[in-house]
């Protein structure tokens, strides 16, 4: 089973395989030093009565931006609620930077959570919403005001901050919740669909913010349905389906592990016809298709390493000049389609 997202990848084929893999795997052992800077879930299951939330999840999430992807009802929110102690696992253990979520007074000094619920205490203004939360953290008036203003500035909500939240647009409410999550400078930020309802400009700004926070060494766990955005911002992804972790790790490595779907590689070169005829002769190449403008060829291969070796040889032998060589389905969207898309036609 997976040890960490950063160092290894786990991808399994069909559901039966996946389940047997999960069942047979033993939970990893984590050293104390490892626990201190990771979010660790060990054999975690959550059942709501007879309904499955998540089942036997083993994860070790390092710092950086981690995208949590999966269709509706796949267990993303349950996983986030488990990380933040809003619900407790039926089985297994959760530890966030070495702190158990059963100790909220310690946990929430270091964790900020922007939940999915679009609800607020009645009658609050944007400023008072953040200010009150900071006072609950135990900060004095001056510090609470300073941090509130800083958070509001970061999400671009300084101007409407004194208006009541009830009168905000959906995007503004989303941003004010984000501000509340980051206001106390947490080291772990858990964001459930934080881009919902934001306009394109605000999305771009938020993505930038998440990436910046990730680069500063924060753990930023983000769930989203917008796959190209997850692709853009995430250092690693967790793919979930029906309560199970389907794949985890850096997206490129995950894609390499999906053996049953040949890898697509786009090559733009001086003689695409010649290249197509040469590569098609190879066993591992399933398809070689000239692209519409006639200046490139799209190759589908079962063995990307062998193909790259062959390409090097052809370039030397046939004196081809290469313009571009790029994987065409090495992104979250494609991986999602390959691993989950067949089960869930809609996201």
């Amino acid at each position: 089973m997976s040890a960490s997202l950063g160092d290894r990848v786990q991808v399994t084929g069909d559901r039966e395989d996946r389940m047997s893999n999960v069942v047979s795997a033993s939970a990893p052992r984590h050293s104390d030093a490892n626990r201190q800077d990771r979010i660790i879930l060990e054999n975690v299951s959550k059942f709501y009565g007879e309904v499955l939330g998540v089942n036997r999840v083993n994860l070790s999430i390092p710092p950086g931006v981690t995208g949590l992807v999966g269709p509706n009802g796949s267990g993303k929110t349950t996983l986030m609620n488990l990380m933040t102690g809003l619900i407790h696992p039926t089985e297994g253990r959760v530890s966030v930077l070495g702190i158990s979520p059963t100790r909220p007074e310690e946990l929430f000094r270091r964790v900020g959570y922007c939940a999915q619920f679009d609800s607020f205490p009645k009658g609050v203004t944007g400023f008072s919403f953040i200010y009150n939360t900071l006072r609950l953290h135990g900060l004095d008036d001056r510090e609470a005001v300073r941090l509130s203003q800083e958070a509001l500035e970061r999400v671009g909500m300084t101007e409407p901050a004194l208006r009541k939240v009830a009168g905000y647009s959906k995007g503004m409410r989303q941003r004010i919740r984000l501000a509340q999550a980051i206001a106390h400078h947490p080291t772990v930020l858990v964001l459930d669909e934080p881009l919902n309802g934001l306009d394109p400009m605000a999305r771009a700004e938020s993505l930038e913010l998440f990436q910046a926070l990730g680069k500063q060494g924060l753990h930023v766990v983000i769930s989203s349905h917008i796959l190209h955005e997850v692709d853009k911002m995430s250092d690693q992804v967790i793919l979930m389906s029906s309560g199970y972790v389907v794949a985890e790790g850096q997206i490129h490595t995950v894609r390499t592990e999906v053996k049953e779907h040949p890898m697509q590689i786009l090559i733009r070169c001086s003689d695409p016809n010649l290249l197509a005829s040469r590569v098609f002769a190879q066993d591992h190449v399933v398809e070689a298709k000239l692209i519409d403008d006639g200046k490139g060829v799209l190759v589908r291969t079962r063995d990307a390493d062998a193909f790259y070796l062959l390409l090097n040889q052809l370039v030397v032998k046939e004196k081809l000049s290469l313009e571009t060589v790029a994987p065409a389905d090495d992104d979250v969207n494609s991986v999602y389609q390959y691993l989950i898309g067949s089960e869930n036609k809609t996201i």
């Binding site: 933040t84 102690g85 809003l86 909220p104 007074e105 310690e106 946990l107 929430f108 000094r109 900020g112 959570y113 939940a115 619920f117 609800s119 607020f120 205490p121 009645k122 939360t133 609950l136 953290h137 135990g138 509340q180």
Partner: peptide
């Protein structure tokens, strides 16, 4: 009231003893 208005979780997201 907090449960009805779905705002109780904000208290639980602060480091406050129950």
């Amino acid at each position: 009231g907090e449960i009805i208005e779905k705002s109780l979780h904000y208290y639980f997201l602060a480091p406050v003893k129950r």
